[in-house]
Design a protein around this nucleic acid. Structure first.
Ligand SMILES: [Zn+2]
Ligand SMILES: [Zn+2]
Ligand SMILES: [Zn+2]
Ligand SMILES: [Zn+2]
Lengths: 163, 163
DNA sequence: TTAAAAAAGTTATAATATAACATAATCAGT
DNA sequence: ACTGATTATGTTATATTATAACTTTTTTAA
């Protein structure tokens, strides 16, 4: 069974998460946008792990004030806000969402997704983008957004569950 | 309004399509798998243009023998077969399917998708793959599949509808 | 204080995809 | 050709993901 340990083998995810949440609060303050309790809660849920999380999983784990179960638009609107602020990325190949590691600057998301443990590692590799931009430019194609999602097996799972 | 002309400005899509279908028939024969009338029809529908096509759009355009409307599994199973044979690619960011330009060799799909005309241009750029593989290797990540989908504006639409 | 704007609640439904089981067509060995 | 196994398709129901449309609440700003 894959370990539930988040992400790189030895990494204190509590710190990882609190940094991300603190950073998000700071950025929203700077930008004059409101990281409301609901949005913060959704962001916290997304940051509970490094595994992309589906909207309906988030919904199930959402604690509303009155104990009533929230409806889908509640979650999708919060996700839309977080996406717009670059605080999360959407993983198209999984219909899921994951916290962004570098929300301060807009950038394209590049992910290595382990099929075994489910963790997604966000890359920040300009070479990949450059390579794509170069090829696009030759064809006169103007790039607006990029979906780069690589599936496979992470080093961690490769080592433990060689198959 | 975007032109409905398929793909690069001047290109005879009838030839483009019949080559793809002929090639598909040949490959299936070689491989000993059956390109049944249903599967062929789905492939034809996908090849009608260079715009990724949704499963339910295919379903609407499917002509069944008895004139009865086919059910979703019919289309999804045909699509699964075509995907398995590498005759089409799935575009995750659009939940849609498109004919493959190089079905003879397994390869990762790389697409430039025009947001204006909807056409998707399949790239065959080893540099992009190499770049990704290199980065993955450094991290000990073993790549199994790649989703590379670049959205923007194609040269054709860039020239005609400069915004 | 109060009108406008933004956020969240609510209900219904759209769009995409699959599970499970029944029937039909094809194939391989006789 | 016959027959059982395999593959493909039909059929029904349902799961999963996402959005439309409208209402109420909260926040902002004059
Ligand atoms: Zn972490
Ligand atoms: Zn990011
Ligand atoms: Zn063509
Ligand atoms: Zn291809």
């Amino acid at each position: 069974m894959p370990s539930d340990a988040p992400f790189p083998d030895e990494h204190n995810h509590a710190i990882c998460m609190s940094q991300a949440l603190g950073n998000a609060a700071k950025l929203c303050l700077q930008r004059g946008v409101r990281l409301t309790p609901l949005r913060l809660q959704v962001l916290e849920l997304v940051w509970r792990s490094h595994k992309p999380l589906g909207a309906y999983t988030i919904l199930e784990n959402l604690q509303t004030a009155q104990g009533r179960r929230a409806a889908p638009p509640t979650v999708y609107r919060a996700l839309d806000f977080l996406l717009a602020q670059g605080l999360i990325h959407r993983i198209a190949s999984l219909n899921a969402f994951i916290g962004c590691l570098h929300p301060e600057a807009t950038h394209v998301g590049q992910f290595l997704i382990c099929e075994h443990c489910g963790n997604a590692i966000e890359l920040d590799t300009p070479e990949i983008t450059n390579c794509i931009m170069q090829r696009a430019e030759i064809l006169g194609f103007v790039v607006k957004s990029q979906t780069i999602e690589i599936s496979g097996r992470c080093a961690h799972c490769q080592a433990r569950y060689a198959s």
